[in-house]
Amino acid sequence: MSPEQSLRALRGATTATANSREAIQEAVEELLNALVERNNLSGEHILSLTFSVTTDLDACFPAAIARQRPGWGGVALLDCQQMAVAGDLKRCIRLLAHVWLEQPARHAYLRDAAKLRPDLAQS
């Protein structure tokens, strides 16, 4: 961490095309890649990352996918189930990360999850 960096909360969400390991992995990798690119992140910048998934996704753990990324061995990762609310977006993967950044956080809302936060979907 450099003196110019501040601890910031970074948000993101996406949707998986199916409840399969392959579909969840594709969605998680796409979301993580977008956040890494938008914020110029490496593993040393990320303090913790919590994933939540809707109840219709149970084929694998998103944190297990993130744990495979080079340089992310020191990142605290956690999975949890999103609160079930009638009419919620299906097959949704959300994340909250605490990261060290010099600039304001650039969030990522991809695929159908762009509907959740249209104001942040293109940031």
Rank of each mutant, 00 (worst) to 15 (best):
W72I: 10
L49V: 01
I24L: 07
A16V: 02
C80G: 08
A23T: 01
A34S: 09
R117A: 15
S42I: 01
L31M: 15
T14H: 08
T17F: 07
P104Y: 11
A9S: 11
L110I: 07
I46M: 11
L78E: 14
L57M: 09
L101D: 12
G43A: 06
R69H: 13
L10M: 04
Q68A: 15
S52K: 08
A66S: 15
L47S: 10
R106E: 15
Q5E: 09
C92E: 15
L101S: 11
R106T: 11
T17P: 03
G74S: 12
L120K: 15
L35C: 07
A113S: 11
D79I: 06
S6P: 00
Q82D: 13
V75H: 08
W72M: 12
Q122T: 10
S2W: 10
M83A: 13
A121R: 08
A23I: 01
D88C: 03
L78S: 11
L78A: 12
A13E: 06
G87T: 10
A121K: 07
L35T: 05
R94W: 10
R69E: 15
A86T: 02
A114G: 12
A59V: 00
E22V: 04
L35E: 11
L35R: 05
P70T: 14
I65E: 03
L31Q: 12
I65L: 12
E29M: 13
M1G: 15
A66H: 08
T50S: 06
G12L: 01
I24S: 00
A84C: 04
H45S: 05
D112P: 04
N19Q: 04
L120R: 14
Q122W: 11
G43K: 03
T54K: 05
A64Y: 06
R117Y: 12
L47Y: 09
L31G: 12
L116V: 03
N39D: 01
I65C: 06
C80A: 13
N33K: 10
R21C: 05
W72T: 08
I65T: 06
L41P: 01
R69G: 03
L110Q: 13
Q122H: 13
L77W: 05
I24D: 00
N19H: 02
S20P: 00
S52P: 01
T55A: 15
S20K: 06
C92N: 13
L41T: 01
N40W: 00
A84V: 06
D112K: 14
L49D: 01
L57W: 07
R38L: 10
R67W: 11
Q81L: 06
V36C: 04
L7H: 00
S42H: 03
D88K: 02
S6Q: 10
G87N: 12
V28L: 13
A34W: 00
S123T: 09
I24W: 00
S20H: 05
W72S: 08
T55I: 09
R94I: 04
E26K: 10
S52C: 05
V85P: 02
Y109V: 06
E37L: 09
L57Y: 06
L32W: 05
G43M: 04
L35K: 07
E102P: 02
R117F: 11
F51P: 01
N39Y: 00
A114D: 13
L101G: 09
P118M: 13
A23R: 04
Y109N: 09
G71W: 14
